[in-house]
Every structure is written in C-alpha cells, then in structure tokens.
Design a protein around this nucleic acid. Structure first.
Lengths: 205, 205
DNA sequence: CAAATAACTGACTAATGGGTCTGTTTTTCG
DNA sequence: CGAAAAACAGACCCATTAGTCAGTTATTTG
C-alpha cells in the first residue's frame, strides 16, 4: 500500500491524460505512444507501471471514471429532499457542464460501452457495474419519493429509472452536434413534463 | 449509370459485409483486410471499386444505413393515423427487432456518431443529416397530431422530438447489456406514460 | 557514502494498418 | 475469334501498433 509518491504521481498523470485521449479519440483509436508523447514519457515508463493497455484502461475506470460518474450522477441524487427536484437539478448540472465543454465528445460511460460491447468482456463487466450502480441509485431515489408521498405510489420505479437513464444517455449523444444548449433546454422541459405525470397530484384544497 | 451487374454485385457484397463488421467492431477497429477475408476477395478488388476506406464507408452510409433508418424509423411514422400510436408502434417494432438480434451492438446510427464525432467531419456531416431527417419527421408528426386534435396544442413539437430521439438512442445502448427484453418493456411503459401527459385529455362526457 | 531498488530511456520486434502497383484472369463487344 | 476493357490477385511499401528488454538515471535506505 505504501506506494511511493513519485509512483502515484506518474501513474495518475498517465491515467488523466489517458482518459482524456480515450474520451476524445476512443480506446482503439488512441495508441499508448499518443499518451506517452503528450506526457514526454517513454514506453519503459508505461510498462513499468502497467501490465498492458487493457490493464491501464481498467485502472482508469476504477480510479477516474467511477469517481466522475459518482460525483456527477450518483451523489447529487442521494440527498433527502424532494426526489424529483434532485434528479432535475442533477441532470441540469450535468448537461450544463457538457454545454460548456468547448469540445464535447458525449457521455463518457455510454461511449465506452458502445466501443467495448461485444469486443471486450472484461472491460464491459466494469462498465456495466457502473451502470448498475446508477440504476440502483435511481430506483431507490424513486422509491424514497414514493414513500415520502412526492411520487405517485403506482409508478414503476425500475421503469422510471430505465427511462431516465435512456433519455440521459441519448441527449448526451444528441448534444455533441450543433446547438447543444437549445437541445438541453428542450430536453429539460420535456423531462419536467414527464415528471409531472408521475408525481402525486397536489389536489387543490 | 450503366454500371455493370457484376460491378454492382461485388460492390454491394462488400458494403453489406463492411457494414456488418463496422457495426460489430467499429469502423476504426475493422480493417479492410478483415472485410476482404470474409469475402475471399483481394486488396486489388477493393481498391478497384473504392478510393479509400473512408469513401467506402460514406457509400455504405448512403446506400445501406440511410435505407435502414428510413424503413425502421422514418416511414412507419409518416402515416396519417393517430400520431402517438404510430410512434409507439414504430419504437415497439424497432426495439423488438433489437431484442431478437442474438448479438445486439446497439443503435447503428448513434454508435457511428459516437465513433466519428470530433474525428471525421466529413462522415459526421452525413450522419448528422440522417439525424436531422429523423428529427424533422418526428416534429411534423407531432404537429400533425396537434392539428388533428390528438395532441395538446400547447406542447412543444421540437421538444417532444428531441426527447423521443434521446430516449430511443439511450434505450438502445442500455439494451445491449443483460435483459434487453425487460428493459424494452419498462421503457415502452414509461413512454406511454409520457405520451399520456402530452395528449389531449379526453374529457369525460 | 555506497549499495540496492525504483523509475525510467529508447532501440527493437513482430504484427497489422491503409494504400499502391504490376500483372493475370474474366467479360464484353465488334 | 480476338482485342480492349473490366474485374480481380497478391506481393510490396511504409507507417503504426502493443509489447519487450538491456541498459541508464534517480531515489532510498542502511
């Protein structure tokens, strides 16, 4: 465990740059040399720290990707306020971040899933695991909402979760094209519309 | 125009196999040799018919991809019946097809968009063009629904279109994992729920 | 301070990539 | 039939790839 500071620093630098390039160009379309050139490091340094390109990527998933998804999509909805508001704000923030990326390459997680699906079972296991955690978090948020009386108790929590995940994954793909801001706005409006249909009607009294 | 039958046959065979492999493995992860091996053809044959791998792919888009999207997602909603039913049936059929693919690699169009985004402007132009046509078709379907009195006249047609596209793209990505059938079912239920919120309330009378 | 170990260099390998080119076979057509 | 054109074969080229390895430099530690 007592990994030296220098070791950690170099490994982290490699992973950060690696994720950046994998996100930009895709895993198969980014060579180890590309990453090394960016960092002015040599082959020897890379294979001293990592067993292979795949091992490198798996470590990136565990060290960086998981954290990113956690901080942007998991933790924000684990609060105890009004569930649907939490989700709205979470999506709003995540999409706003994407809008402000001058160069947006879509949703990290779904990009990698598309790239590795059917081609690398090992990596897919890790990516699906993250998806599963996201799904579980959403399901329990919905159920909390039902319990708290904010969400209609007849709604299918799993269904809502799948629908939310789908729409988020899709809008991130659509936003890479022109006018991400307009699309984000339209998306959020419709999301609110959908939410109105599953929340408890505040009967006028 | 009078392209010989033999020429057309060979080119078509190459394109069909090419699309198959590009879909399975991705464009950058499929070599020209891979395609040629599958067909027992030689380099000479390939470069006799196509200028480059990119030219080959653009022709695949125009000849095969466009038609696929048209027949599965465009034409089915151009009818004149109840708009939302058309869309429901269209999505239902498209997703059911995906479920029955023993090996599903996601939504062709969005996979390629993810792969080429920021890496090949030329190819992206063609892919975005298809997206645009899909969007326009959905928008006019919604507007037709408003005009016919099936859809609430206050709804934002563009917004609904973006939301529908997003959710479809996303569910196709989610369905590549386990239990595509269950996810499809949940998705369709929520889609109906959403549609209830934008259709004209049939006031009980 | 020195020896050991950690961190790194960069030349090398074997495989594979897209693409070229010379030549052979097949088809067309007068 | 026979010549021209079309369709194709496959060896070759050069750049790039993941990964190896013997050697060098930096850092710890006794």
């Amino acid at each position: 465990m007592e990994k030296s500071l220098k070791r950690m620093t170099t490994m982290n630098r490699m992973q950060v740059t690696g994720l950046e390039l994998f996100y930009k160009n895709g895993y198969y379309n980014t060579s180890v040399d590309d990453i090394l050139k960016e960092l002015s490091l040599s082959k020897g340094a890379f294979y001293y720290h990592f067993d292979s390109k795949e091992d490198f990527f798996v470590q990136i998933i565990q060290n960086l990707l998981v954290r990113k998804i956690y901080s942007s999509l998991i933790e924000p909805i684990e609060g105890h306020e009004h569930t649907l508001d939490l989700i709205i704000n979470c999506f709003e923030d995540a999409l706003e971040t994407a809008v402000h990326n001058e160069m947006d390459y879509g949703f990290l997680l779904s990009n990698f899933i598309n790239e590795f699906n059917g081609r690398n079972e090992e990596v897919m296991k890790h990516l699906n695991e993250i998806l599963r955690i996201w799904e579980v978090t959403l399901v329990s948020a919905i159920q909390r909402g039902k319990f708290n009386g904010h969400i209609d108790r007849h709604v299918d929590a799993e269904g809502v979760a799948v629908y939310l995940m789908s729409s988020y994954i899709g809008i991130r793909t659509l936003m890479v094209e022109n006018t991400p801001s307009a699309r984000k706005y339209r998306f959020m409006s419709q999301l609110r519309q959908y939410f109105k249909s599953i929340e408890v009607k505040q009967s006028s009294f």
